[in-house]
Amino acid sequence: MNDQTIYDRLFGKGGHELIFNGLFLQGTARVGGQNVAVIGTRDHAAIDGSIALQITEAILNVVREDVASRTSPRSIILIADTQGQALSRHEELLGLNGYFAHIVKCVDLARRNGHKLLTIINGEAVSGGFLSYGMMADCICALPDAQVRVMDLRAMSRVTKISLERLETLAKESPVFAPGAENFWRMGGIHEIWKEQDDWPQRISNALAHITKADARAEIGLERGGRHFAAPISKLVAEA
């Protein structure tokens, strides 16, 4: 599906005004008659410092506009489509991790200012690029074809020196290392996976209506049986 088809399906024909600037996109859409801000990346963007600053500028603008106009904070829909962080000596020299930390702080400011945050994974969501903004939302949803991963099994096999065959066998039982939105869902890292036949605008409305501000992913992972240790161990230490 091309961009137009995807956004028509998400927000309805004529339900969105999005501006595409290279790998970055932003604009406004309607959800249940309300305006929401849409900010994100496309074409499996490798997130570098420039894209990071485009994302943060857009988030800060939404926060600033709603503070200035004294209107109730708009929901922000983050579109994640990233192959991960840009790999470059120049970016590292300038401190790409610091730019990512800035994104995280901007997303968190929006949350604390009352903006509901919903991520929609369209395409790919990979490690650092996903971590920097997509994973910071209150609710993280994946479209049916979404590819979510840290590293593919072949590369993982090289780094860990565990045979690919063995990893493939183990991946059938454990969601803990193999790529796949389904694995992240079981571990609570993704809240919802939407189906092709779903009414996507309805799913957006529902997701926004049920957003909670506290990070409950560890408990969700426990409930879904994909992450048995994060919640109890975190609790053990917190209550020590």
Partner: peptide, 18 residues
């Protein structure tokens, strides 16, 4: 992220951030 448990590690770091 510890690659041997990559998905758990990535989610854990995002929880750490929050």
């Amino acid at each position: 992220v510890r690659l041997h448990e990559a998905n758990a590690g990535l989610i854990a770091i995002s929880e750490l951030v929050r």
